[in-house]
Every structure is written in structure tokens, then in C-alpha cells.
């Protein structure tokens, strides 16, 4: 365990075993998870040895964008990936979605290997990816109809309306995407992804292009829906505060090429987290400083230390170790 104190991991690492349960973030929602997690050998989503190379003219073996990527996501967990632009976050998400193929490694979800896209995984795309010739309602209905081909038109409509109302768009059902603001478009994208009630949700920087105020209110809506549905979420972001607000686990990626998972940070702040009071909790700034420090410095300089194992990225608890004496 001495490796935990090596300069690459400045904060004390509590455990190296992602399978071992961390203290439950909130007594209510996760208490039931504690038992099964310690006993089960397979997390809900398991990523093993993932690597992606893009062919480059004139180079038979180009440097992979990332390699040796291993991590797991438990059922009901909200995991954020934090890393600089270009490190391969979108590529990883596309592989999880089944839209792209890994050069090596594999993804196993719920006991089955991911091969191609599936209704089991809902995707919110970086650009909203709404179809501009369809109204907000029709965009969501398109997804609902795909999920439930046997439903009547009325059932499909009611289901779609329900999810649009969840993101407070009940008043804009018949508006075309061109008539919606950026935030509203992203909300439709979220409603569309949730409406198929997937086993897992993948979000690619869904709020990247939004102003702070809009982002805040959609984040709150997202928290609400995730709490209500106990959805398992994998989300990409480059916003530290967003990761702290939303994630139970924060996966830190080093810069590419050959990006790796440096560590996985456990969010000590209890769920449900409330934006207004979050920064008053003592653990908040320790966590935030840890993440910012990673982004500005360690993501660039990261070198695997002697105790670092790509197959088991260290699980870090910044809030609990407090100031190392």
C-alpha cells in the first residue's frame, strides 16, 4: 500500500479494489446495494482492456487514442468521465453505445457483450441530434415507437408527453427544433433517451454548449429523473463542478494519445446533492481541488507508478483522507 503515497497519487488511497464497497453515499438508495456488490464478481457494466486506434495514412501501427482501459459501473451508479478534449471520451462512449468498435478489449453489460447499438442503452449526443423535420413530440415519439412497435398511437403519444413533461417541455410539444433554444433542444434529447427506459444511459457532454444558468436547471432536472428512475448513467464532461454535482464515481482520464484511466474518484458527498448547499460541505473543496489539480497538472504528467495497475485503477477518496499530515 505504500505506493498509494507515491507522488502520482497525492491523496491517500483508501482501497485499490473497486469491488469492495465504499461507504454508501446515501443510506436510502444504496444500502440495498452494499450486500450484492461485495459478493458479486461482475459489475453491471464491465469494460476490459479497451483500446482504439484510428488508421492513419503512412503509419501501419498508429498510436492508440487510449489503451488498457478497465473500469466497471454498478447498477444505479452515476459515473462521470473527466478528461481533456481529445483524450478519447467520445470514442469510449461510442464503443459503449455500440456505435464504434474497439481495436482491442470488450464491454460487457448485464452479462452480455456489447456488439452493436441496442435499445438497452439510451444515448444523449454531444450535439442534440434531433431530427429538424419533426416536432419535439414527434422526435420523442419516434424513439417510443421504436421501443414499443405494438403500442397504439395514443399510448405512444402519452408516453412521449410524460417524458417531455419531466423535462418541463409540456408547453413546447409541437415546436420544431429550430424554434427551440439550445437548452430546450438538449432537454428533448434527454427526454428521448429516457423515454425508451434503457438499462443504461450514455450522455456525451450534454450541457457543454449551454450557458451556466440553463445548464444548472437542466442538471437539476437530470438529478430529479435519475433519482426517480434509479437509472445507471455514464456521462462525459469536462466541467469539474458538474461531475461533483452529478457523479457517484468520477473516472479521471489522462491526456491522449495512449490515454489511460489514472484513477477513479469516489464522490463522498451524499446523494441527492443540492447545488445550492453543495459547496458548504467540508468535503466539497477537497474533492474539487483534487479534480482541478488532476486536470491542470496530473492529466498531462501522469506516469504509471509501481503500484498502479491498469486493470484495477486506484479508487480514491479525497474527502475522507482530509489533509495528509
Amino acid at each position: 500500500m505504500s505506493a498509494a503515497l507515491a507522488p502520482v497519487v497525492p491523496l491517500k488511497t483508501q482501497t485499490r479494489d473497486p469491488v469492495e464497497a465504499a461507504p454508501p453515499p446515501s443510506a436510502g438508495s444504496s444500502a440495498d446495494k452494499k450486500g450484492p456488490i461485495t459478493m458479486s464478481t461482475q459489475p453491471f457494466l464491465k469494460v476490459e482492456g479497451l483500446k482504439r486506434q484510428f488508421p492513419q495514412p503512412g503509419s501501419p501501427d498508429p498510436a492508440p487514442v487510449f489503451e488498457d482501459v478497465h473500469f466497471g459501473i454498478e447498477r444505479g451508479q452515476f459515473v462521470c468521465v473527466l478528461g481533456h478534449s481529445g483524450c478519447g471520451k467520445t470514442t469510449i462512449l461510442n464503443i459503449l453505445a455500440g456505435l464504434d468498435e474497439a481495436s482491442a478489449g470488450h464491454v460487457i453489460m448485464d452479462g452480455r457483450e456489447v456488439r452493436g447499438p441496442s435499445l438497452d442503452r439510451g444515448v444523449v449526443f454531444q450535439g442534440h441530434a434531433l431530427m429538424p423535420w419533426l416536432s419535439a413530440l414527434k422526435n420523442v415519439e419516434f424513439a417510443v415507437r421504436s421501443r414499443h412497435p405494438d403500442w397504439s398511437a395514443k399510448q405512444v403519444r402519452e408516453h412521449a408527453v410524460k417524458y417531455l413533461e419531466l423535462v418541463h417541455l409540456g408547453h413546447a410539444l409541437d415546436k420544431k427544433p429550430a424554434e427551440l433554444s439550445g437548452g430546450m433542444k438538449q432537454r428533448v434529447g434527454i427526454a428521448r433517451a429516457f423515454s425508451i427506459e434503457p438499462k443504461m444511459l450514455l450522455l456525451d457532454e450534454p450541457f457543454g454548449a449551454l450557458d451556466a444558468l440553463t445548464r444548472g436547471s437542466i442538471q437539476d432536472e437530470l438529478i430529479g429523473i435519475v433519482e426517480a428512475t434509479q437509472q445507471t448513467v455514464f456521462m462525459i464532461t469536462h466541467d469539474v463542478d458538474e461531475a461533483i454535482l452529478l457523479a457517484d464515481r468520477i473516472v479521471l482520464m489522462t491526456n491522449g494519445p495512449r490515454a489511460k484511466i489514472a484513477e477513479i474518484v469516489v464522490n463522498p458527498l451524499a446523494r441527492p446533492r443540492v447545488r445550492e448547499t453543495l459547496h458548504q460541505q467540508p468535503a466539497f473543496y477537497t474533492l474539487r481541488n483534487h479534480l482541478v489539480d488532476f486536470l491542470v497538472k496530473r492529466s498531462r504528467e501522469f506516469q504509471p507508478g509501481p503500484g498502479w495497475d491498469a486493470k484495477n485503477p486506484p479508487l480514491v477518496h479525497p474527502g475522507q483522507s482530509s489533509q495528509p499530515a
Partner: peptide
């Protein structure tokens, strides 16, 4: 991206051709 939406929704080729 629209084709990707259709793929993630497992839309049949015919539906994709006519609706996307």
C-alpha cells in the same frame, strides 16, 4: 448523428429509409 440515433433505437432498415 441522425443515422446514429436510428441505430441506437434499433430502427428497421425500411423505417430508417422512410422516416430518417
Amino acid at each position: 448523428e441522425w443515422l446514429n440515433v436510428a441505430r441506437t433505437l434499433e430502427v428497421s432498415p425500411l423505417r430508417k429509409a422512410f422516416l430518417v
